[in-house]
Amino acid sequence: METDCTRRHEGVPPLPSGTRLLHIGPHKTGTTSIQGAMFAAKDRLGEHGVLWPATTRHPMEAVLAACARPGMMGDAGPSEKQWLQLVDRVNGAGRAVTSVISSEFFADAPDDATIGRIVAQLGGDSVHVLVTLRPLAKIMPSQWQQYVQNGLRMGYEEWLDHMLRKAPYEKPNPSFWRRHRHDRLVERWVRAVGAERVTVVVVDDRDRDGLMRTFEQLLGLPQGLLQEVPDTANRSLTLAETEMLRNLNKEFRGNGLPDELYSKLVRHGAVMHMKNACSPTPQDVKICTPQWAVEAAAEIGAEMARSIGATGVRVLGDPALLSAVPKPGTETLAEPRIAPEVAAQALYGALAAAAAAPIRNTAPVKSRTVHQTSSRELVKVLGHRCLKRLRRR
């Protein structure tokens, strides 16, 4: 049976010229694919009256500043200037040009006042909000490994237990339900722009190009203009890679090393190089969600679909996908083991980052002899000495 999920959405007219299309994600719903495709095609968009105002694929720092949200662990804080520069490029394009601003971090906007300010700065009545959604059961493993990349030390099943069974479901990641209680996310933005200026797209993973074609329709672009751009730096980690990083996080935090060191050497060094240099193989063990959590996520998905429908927003795609329960996997759960070459690439990435980038603002360390210092404290001392040498360089 053919549905709107498996073909171009018929009868979806382009948005009016001059619309400021605000794609708010949330995370893990195809945002990276859209951002990469739009950025790659930005020089051709102008021929069709469309502007990609960001100077990069993803204006993350600008949006973090707009939402008053801190940067990633150890990164420099975002600047309001970056957001205002993006707003100026949007407003400077004129009323005849449709602008597209896409960032999943808009979903982190903390309150109605922040959302209202963002909408007002981007043009008020010209703003149309686009929300892309996928089933929670497919989002949760991706979000867990992403949190691990930002320092999380909790295992997957324990994390699921906290997110699904331990009210108020705020520990260890309060941002998760802020982003992924999708009905409340839609309601917050409806309060700012009205239901008639919100479109929800339910992404069907079986239709790889479906989201691209939907964006083309909404923007009045020729079919096929937007093409997926491979981005190895954004790939999800395998279970073995995630577990290696999670255990590193435990040692890192347990030894009190500074967050800036984590940002430079681990996230932007070891992890980034490992992602770029190594592709997952069929032998790699995937992050597997237990059946109880899949069923719990489907129940929440059904409730969210009903609530979204009641808001009166336009929904493209099949809302039933949000509550579908996939059949249990038949694969044998092997013990995750990281390949030696993957570990070597991660280590090399950390060493290359250490050699390339000085790290500042580190706390002084008291001098001690080796015999007076425990092995745990030695790691901390050596880490700080490494920072001091990098700073001198």
Score class of each variant (00 low, 15 high):
residue 173 N to K: 06
residue 174 P to Q: 13
residue 174 P to S: 15
residue 175 S to G: 08
residue 175 S to N: 09
residue 176 F to D: 00
residue 176 F to P: 01
residue 176 F to T: 05
residue 176 F to K: 07
residue 177 W to K: 10
residue 177 W to H: 04
residue 178 R to G: 12
residue 179 R to H: 10
residue 179 R to E: 06
residue 180 H to P: 09
residue 180 H to Q: 15
residue 180 H to G: 14
residue 181 R to G: 12
residue 181 R to S: 11
residue 181 R to Y: 06
residue 182 H to S: 10
residue 182 H to Q: 10
residue 183 D to C: 03
residue 183 D to F: 02
residue 183 D to T: 00
residue 184 R to S: 00
residue 185 L to N: 06
residue 185 L to T: 12
residue 186 V to M: 02
residue 186 V to A: 11
residue 186 V to F: 06
residue 189 W to T: 05
residue 189 W to S: 06
residue 190 V to C: 05
residue 190 V to Q: 07
residue 192 A to R: 06
residue 192 A to E: 02
residue 193 V to T: 09
residue 194 G to R: 08
residue 194 G to S: 03
residue 197 R to I: 06
residue 197 R to T: 07
residue 198 V to K: 09
residue 198 V to L: 08
residue 199 T to Y: 02
residue 199 T to W: 02
residue 200 V to G: 03
residue 200 V to T: 03
residue 200 V to N: 09
residue 200 V to L: 04
residue 201 V to S: 05
residue 201 V to G: 01
residue 202 V to L: 11
residue 204 D to L: 00
residue 204 D to Q: 00
residue 206 R to S: 04
residue 207 D to G: 03
residue 207 D to M: 12
residue 208 R to D: 14
residue 208 R to L: 14
residue 208 R to I: 15
residue 209 D to T: 13
residue 209 D to Q: 13
residue 209 D to K: 14
residue 210 G to L: 01
residue 210 G to H: 03
residue 211 L to E: 10
residue 212 M to I: 02
residue 212 M to H: 11
residue 214 T to F: 10
residue 214 T to D: 13
residue 216 E to N: 01
residue 216 E to T: 01
residue 218 L to R: 09
residue 218 L to T: 03
residue 219 L to A: 06
residue 219 L to Q: 05
residue 220 G to Q: 08
residue 221 L to D: 00
residue 222 P to Y: 08
residue 222 P to K: 11
residue 223 Q to F: 08
residue 223 Q to I: 05
residue 223 Q to D: 13
residue 223 Q to L: 11
residue 223 Q to P: 08
residue 224 G to Q: 10
residue 225 L to R: 03
residue 225 L to D: 01
residue 225 L to H: 02
residue 226 L to R: 04
residue 226 L to D: 03
residue 226 L to T: 05
residue 226 L to Y: 05
residue 227 Q to C: 10
residue 227 Q to T: 15
residue 228 E to K: 14
residue 229 V to Y: 05
residue 229 V to Q: 15
residue 230 P to K: 12
residue 231 D to N: 15
residue 231 D to M: 14
residue 232 T to N: 11
residue 232 T to W: 04
residue 233 A to R: 14
residue 233 A to H: 09
residue 234 N to D: 08
residue 234 N to Q: 14
residue 234 N to L: 08
